[in-house]
Design a protein around this nucleic acid. Structure first.
Length: 726
RNA sequence: GGGCGCUUAGCUCAGUUGGUAGAGCAACACUUUUACACAGUGAAGGUCACAGGUUCGAGUCCUGUAGCGCCCACCA
């Protein structure tokens, strides 16, 4: 058979991603098919088709794309593109997050560096203005980068956690939960950072190992031990385990007198299982105002709680002669005094223990009792499943299979987390974020959208935990609390895809919020991906210098190669590795398909494809193989085994299609005749199918080839049908 | 301390309900044959962590041991 001369010229060179990618992006944008309304309008999707909706876990508005987010986008785009091609009404909603703590910290640090001023120096209003400016200057980066990845997001529905609609949703959610009694204000022990003057959520604690002396002190008839003598001024309870044989003769509630730092005190014996019999003497004194465990013990037995340390870390008057001193400095002097009084029985100099620090800024945390806002997880509310607590709801929807988590073993992690779940502290003492919609006037409290009429009302100065707004995301992005069409069509979303590391923080809390506000789940499925590591299996971090920038790599090897190398070898929920060599490997693959297309097009043309001839027996068999390939790939995608789908396609295309089918076709074409015609039809059909199936994974190269095909059922591969014979 | 995982080729990892061990990369030899050298052909490479058990049959199921990792809690 004679070579066709009408092969597009571009195929005569190796595949050049830089040349094609921008063109494809423009083509897709012009089509507008990421918007399901456009798909319906243009007759691509049926108006009553099954929906497939998914929210993009919103990246930080001022962030930059890294391999982790690239993986997430690749996975979601594959699911979305496949669903769209399968005829579903497909919506993928983009958005960004304000990441309040991180953003404020960054701006504060910048200001301090340039002007040596703290936020207290410049004031709330000014700081917020500076943050807004900072966000305005940096917000486009991440959006541009996401677009470059080829993500088929519907940007007409873009949402930002701090925009007007989302802010409205946050306030509405807070007010409704307050009115239902699920949000309350309470005194609780919180992690207070004296350095930055804010509370820190449990998730933001970083434990740092430290070596300090452990002092063993005589306390009445008991020996207690502590690394922090400076907190011990108010101690008047000794706690021991109820079944500790050594202290059998001491009854719960009995009192005794003990000589202590600033003179004699009357102490009470408390029996509580929190005491560890194997630690030291098995007896401890407690400081309820400055220790979580102690606070809980005190609560159980309704003991007095007295503050010893103020918000700045200075000792209060209870410390007597030490009052006003900073705890750090006071310790040595207090130890001296205890020694002088003969109360120090022993010192372990090299005692290793963990100190809680603020992972941003590193300040050592000092637990304090503060008034905070909480979402009560054990308070009943009326749900479609009857009267339930939030905790019971969150447990039920996963246990009864309304929400399926993949990989399955994370269901255990989730349920275990729910078991240990305590009330969620949602107030934060920072300035950037959604302000708590509560006003005070003396003892009066008002929760609503604005201050009540009449003067003297002062709004709560705290803002909400950033996860509060994030947990409304599946429905706030669809227009809630308005009863929008989108909300009706696309909620619950089909699937939530995110990293396993935020399963508790985000996934669980979305289930909570959706349960209360909508009475159903926010999604039907949860798919969790793993972390991206370097080829040595190390976490990617700036300090290790092993960061591989996805956009640099795309520049060098093409975005398809980057996407494919993230997906291949990535089993659900398992950490995967990335390396430049791997990316290069998939660039070769893109080139392979390119050359396959060239070969096929050299042996077909619009003219030859017109003749509808029956395939030979051999070709029939080959076409059956392609059907199996389609079935396998579709099944793998449905099971979220994108790695297997990618592998299957890779091997079929390279080892079967290229190495075998094309090789044997050369002889057939040399002989010519009907067999050759049949074969050229078959190869063309295989190419078409491979392009369709591979498109979600490698959208650019497949679309670029598609654009040059002489015969196809759709102008854009992006909205071509998933399975069909032309 | 509680929970969840992992251990398969030099490296990174697949291995779906048990049925004679797989891929990519790396390394080796050969080949410039007009789709592609960003290639092809071929060869090499493994006591599936270890020890028991169930089974006709175990990488796969069960029990235990060792090593590694992650999450949660946090020791006064």
């Amino acid at each position: 058979m004679k070579l066709q001369r009408d092969v597009p010229e571009q195929f005569l060179k190796p595949y050049n991603p830089q040349e094609q990618e921008q063109k494809m992006l423009e083509l897709w944008e012009k089509g507008g098919f990421a918007n399901p309304d456009v798909c319906i309008e243009k007759g691509i999707t049926k108006p009553d088709a099954e929906t497939f909706s998914i929210v993009l876990p919103p990246p930080n508005v001022t962030g930059v794309l890294h391999m982790g987010s690239a993986l997430m986008i690749a996975i979601e785009d594959i699911l979305v593109r496949a669903a769209r091609m399968q005829g579903k009404r497909t919506l993928w909603i983009p958005g960004t997050d304000s990441a309040a703590i991180a953003t404020q910290a960054k701006v504060e640090a910048d200001i301090y560096k340039a002007e040596k001023k703290t936020r207290h120096d410049i004031g709330r209003e000014n700081l917020l203005k500076r943050i807004e400016t900072f966000i305005a200057e940096n917000r486009s980066t991440i959006i541009t980068q996401i677009k470059k990845m080829g993500a088929s997001l519907d940007w007409s529905r873009y949402a930002y956690t701090m925009d007007e609609k989302r802010s409205r949703a946050v306030t509405e959610a807070f007010v409704r939960m307050y009115e239902a009694g699920l949000i309350y204000r309470g005194l609780r022990i919180v992690n207070w950072d004296p350095k930055s003057q804010t509370t820190v959520s449990d998730d933001e604690i970083e434990y740092v190992e430290q070596t300090d002396p452990l002092y063993h002190l005589q306390y009445g008839p008991f020996t207690i031990s502590t690394v922090r003598p400076e907190t011990k001024f108010g101690d008047k309870y000794v706690v021991m385990h109820p079944s500790d044989e050594r202290y059998k003769k001491h009854k719960h509630g009995e009192t005794f007198e003990a000589e202590w730092i600033n003179g004699p005190v009357v102490a009470t014996v408390i029996k509580d299982e929190a005491a560890d019999m194997s630690f030291g003497s098995g007896v401890m004194t407690i400081t309820p105002a400055h220790s979580g465990i102690d606070f809980e013990i005190a609560q159980r037995h309704t003991l007095e709680m007295e503050r010893i340390i103020d918000d700045r870390g200075l000792l209060l008057p209870i410390a007597g002669e030490f009052a006003g001193e900073h705890i750090k400095k006071a310790r040595a002097r207090i130890v001296e005094k205890l020694k002088a009084k003969g109360l120090v029985t022993k010192i372990d100099e090299q005692y290793k223990h963990n100190v809680a620090t603020n992972y941003r800024g590193g300040g050592i945390l000092e637990p304090q009792i503060k008034k905070q806002w909480f979402v009560g997880v054990n308070i009943p509310f009326e749900s479609p499943k009857g009267t339930l607590t939030l905790k019971q709801w969150m447990k039920a929807v996963v246990e009864n299979g309304e929400i399926k988590i993949t990989p399955e073993h994370f269901e255990k992690t989730y349920l275990h987390w729910i078991e240990n779940l305590r009330d969620w502290c949602v107030s934060r003492q920072i300035w950037f974020g959604h302000r708590i919609p509560v006003w005070y006037r003396g003892e009066e409290i008002h929760c609503g959208f604005e201050a009540p009429k009449g003067g003297g009302w002062i709004q709560d100065t705290d803002v909400l935990d950033t996860w509060f707004s994030s947990s409304l995301w599946t429905f706030s992005t669809l227009g809630w609390p308005e009863k929008t069409k989108d909300l009706g069509s696309y909620h619950p979303t089909a699937i939530l895809e995110t990293g396993y590391d935020i399963l508790p923080f985000w996934v669980a809390r979305m289930i909570l919020m959706s349960g209360f506000h909508l009475g159903h789940t926010p999604f039907k499925k949860v798919y969790l991906h793993g972390l991206v590591r370097d080829k040595e299996g190390r976490k990617i971090s700036k300090s290790l210098g092993n960061n591989i920038d996805p956009l640099d790599m795309a520049e060098k090897y093409g975005m398809d190669a980057v996407r494919m190398s993230l997906i291949a070898g990535m089993a659900p929920g398992t950490d995967s590795t990335i390396s430049e060599e791997k990316i290069r490997g998939y660039k070769h693959f893109a080139n392979k398909i390119w050359n396959i297309a060239r070969f096929v097009l050299e042996h077909t043309s619009a003219d030859t494809l017109k003749n509808d001839i029956p395939p030979t027996e051999a070709d029939k068999k080959i076409l059956e193989e392609v059907e199996i390939l389609t079935r396998d790939t579709t099944a793998h995608i449905e099971n979220f085994r994108l790695d297997l789908a990618a592998d299957t396609l890779y091997h079929f295309i390279w080892n079967r299609f290229a190495d075998e089918l094309i090789e044997e076709s050369k002889k057939i074409f040399t002989r010519g005749g009907e067999d050759a015609t049949s074969r050229s039809h078959a190869l063309y059909a295989i190419l078409i199918t491979c392009l369709r199936l591979l498109h979600p994974f490698m959208p650019f190269v497949t679309e670029a080839i598609w654009q040059k095909l002489p015969k196809k059922d759709s102008e854009l591969l992006m909205v071509a049908r998933w399975t069909t014979t032309p």
